[in-house]
Simulated assay, not measured.
Amino acid sequence: MAETTGSIEFCMDDEVFQTGYKIFGELEPGTCPLLALHGGPGMPHSYILPIAELTASKGIPVIFYDQLGCGMSTHLPSKPKDFWTVELFMAELDNIISHLGIADAFDLYGQSWGGMLAANYVVSRNPKGLRRLIISDSPASIELWTAANNVLLSAFSHEFREMLRKHELGGTTDSLAYQQGIQQFNEKHICTVSPWPDVLIEAFAAVDADPTVYSTMIGPSEFNITGTLKTWSIVDDLHKISAPTLLISGKYNQAQDIAILPFFQKIGKVKWVQFAQSSHTPIFEEKKRYLEVVADFLADC
């Protein structure tokens, strides 16, 4: 299985940055590659690499890249808050599609924030070459995401919830108690595999090492979103998505049904598959079925 790693120049406001990418398979004429968008924001692509197994099993070329600010791409810890916008990442995506020469035929996959970005890109750009869209573990708005997370949080003890809120209000989210609390929540609603896969641990560690994008766009936590995505919503524009769309969610996902329902109600050609034994990462929790669902969708549409 061919594997290509490289870097693409990305120009923004007279500055030149680098977007690191990795391709499994060959981008040959007549193929329709799957372009994969990772989550975070600011979490490198390494944790969604299981998607690359579709190259070996189904012959589908898969393209991964690290969005600006993380992984193999240019890190910019000194950039102001207003630099980190959805439009920035859509412009970067435009650049990748153009550089790799796939504008006439490609499928788009997004996990978590990557699914939000993918949906936003489709309604904003209406890319002519988009064949199929996969939105995995993603909310249709931050308001619905926050509501879903707080529903999940309500199942924890009053003392636990008050401890988290105390540290968030006090600006002490780096404390051991808070970090242990977040990990306790994450083990129920991010990934229920024990121990966590190494690639997922490494991806979280990368965010800790450079939290610029996450802290700017999200804030201190998923329960207290204060960043540039605070008012983000795609709900009113979902009817603009005409491509066949696959929705994926886990029963115990942070993106609960209330956060996903608008996609299902407003996209014209849509299929929704829920994974009963999974939370936010069925790509690990029910990996075999997850890859089968994705492969079947790409083959059937």
Rank of each mutant, 00 (worst) to 15 (best):
P127V: 10
Y21N: 02
Q274C: 10
K266R: 14
Q67R: 07
Y121D: 02
T31V: 15
Q179L: 10
V16T: 15
L34T: 09
V86P: 07
E87H: 12
G30K: 10
S278K: 04
S194E: 08
I241S: 01
T192D: 05
F24L: 08
D14Y: 09
F297K: 01
K58W: 06
W84K: 01
I258V: 12
E159L: 08
L117A: 10
D66S: 09
L291K: 03
F223E: 04
E285D: 14
T19Y: 02
L117E: 04
L130E: 03
R132E: 06
I97S: 01
L169D: 14
G42V: 08
A155H: 12
A259F: 03
V122E: 00
E159K: 11
F297H: 05
I248E: 00
P41S: 06
H45L: 06
V123C: 05
S141H: 07
N120L: 08
V123F: 09
G71P: 06
G227C: 11
A209S: 13
I201V: 13
D300Q: 14
T212W: 01
Q277K: 13
L246E: 01
H280E: 04
V199N: 11
N120I: 09
D137V: 07
D107N: 13
L130Q: 03
L93C: 09
R165D: 14
E202W: 10
N120V: 09
S57I: 06
N150Y: 11
E28V: 12
I48V: 15
E285K: 06
